Simulated scan of single mutants.
Amino acid sequence: MASHPRSSAFFILQLSLLPTILSLQANAAYYDISPVECGCPDQYEVTMRLYLHQFVAGPNHPNRNEEFVIASSYPNGFGTTLVNDWYLTTTPSPNGKVIARAQGIHVQAGTTDANSWYTSFNIVFQDDRFNGSTLQVMGIILAQNFGEWSIMGGTGEFTMAHGNIKFRVDTRDSTSEDAIRELEIRAVYTSITQLAFCHKHL
């Protein structure tokens, strides 16, 4: 039985669009931005999935991106302080494109737990889309393979940001040198373009 002409035309159209669809999937952005549905036309919500690479400190780790600043003789290393310049990529591979750097400190803040690290850092974006913008992050790193940090503010594109970051250790791809954390970033912020427009018309 002969195929319907319209069905054949639709099938050919699908085939012709396939390269475009595959190209869009391959170049999918690591972020998504949408307006906040709360009657606030100048606010947006951004979600991202990035991978944080912590190349641990120590003399036998030449690629380390953190360094001891204060050593401690207290039990459990209480007060030990390190400065960090971790970096974030779009994939678990440490050789992937660096989207941002997590620059700040982490301090062993537990007197009864050797793995209770208070951390405060800026995520400083360096990719083309958000270059120069920052997110201010605070939280705790515990022994568990998962956790959550708070987003306390931001600059540039992410002016007045607030939100959270849920993370988990990527046990499959992490190595003895590179502790990889998968980050799910969610933040609400005020569009700097809209903010400038509002101030101009006050």
Rank of each mutant, 00 (worst) to 15 (best):
G58W: 07
M48E: 08
S93A: 12
N63C: 01
S34D: 03
I70S: 13
L142K: 11
T90E: 13
F146P: 00
Q144N: 15
E67M: 10
Q54Y: 04
V56A: 03
A109I: 03
V107R: 14
F125H: 07
F130W: 09
A100V: 05
G39P: 03
I99K: 05
I141S: 10
V56H: 08
T111H: 10
P75V: 04
A109S: 14
N63I: 00
H106G: 03
G58I: 01
D85I: 06
S34W: 00
C40V: 07
T134R: 09
V36Q: 07
P35K: 12
N145M: 07
D113N: 15
I123M: 14
F130E: 09
Q103H: 09
A71N: 12
L82W: 03
E45R: 14
G110L: 07
H106T: 01
R101Y: 14
C38I: 01
C38N: 15
A114S: 15
T47S: 14
I141T: 14
G58P: 02
Y87D: 02
D42R: 09
H61V: 10
E37W: 00
Q54F: 02
G132E: 11
G96V: 01
W86A: 02
Y87K: 03
R129P: 00
F55A: 01
T89I: 03
W149G: 05
V69H: 11
Y118H: 11
N131M: 08
Q103E: 10
V137K: 03
V137R: 06
G77P: 01
T90C: 03
G39M: 08
N76V: 05
D127L: 02
V124K: 09
A71E: 15
I33C: 06
L52N: 04
C40S: 13
A71H: 10
T81W: 11
E45I: 06
I70G: 00
E66C: 06
P59Q: 10
G39H: 09
Q54R: 13
T81R: 06
Y118F: 15
N95R: 09
S133E: 12
H106K: 14
T111P: 00
A57T: 02
Q43C: 09
F121A: 09
H53M: 01
E148D: 10
A57Q: 11
G96R: 01
Q43R: 14
F68L: 15
T47D: 09
N84M: 15
M48H: 04
V98L: 05
T111Q: 11
D85G: 08
A143R: 09
V137D: 10
N95C: 02
N63G: 00
T90P: 00
I99N: 03
G39C: 08
L82A: 13
E45H: 04
Y118W: 12
I141E: 14
P94T: 02
T112Q: 13
Y74M: 11
G79H: 10
L88N: 03
W117E: 06
N76F: 15
Y87M: 05
G110P: 01
I33W: 02
A109H: 04
N95K: 09
F125G: 04
E148W: 00
N131F: 05
S116R: 11
A114D: 11
N63S: 12
Q108L: 07
W149C: 05
I70E: 09
M48K: 02
G110F: 08
F121H: 11
N95L: 10
E148P: 00
P59E: 15
A57L: 02
P35L: 13
N60H: 06
G147Q: 09
D128S: 14
S120G: 11
V137N: 07
T80P: 00
S72G: 03
V36C: 09
A71F: 10
V137P: 05
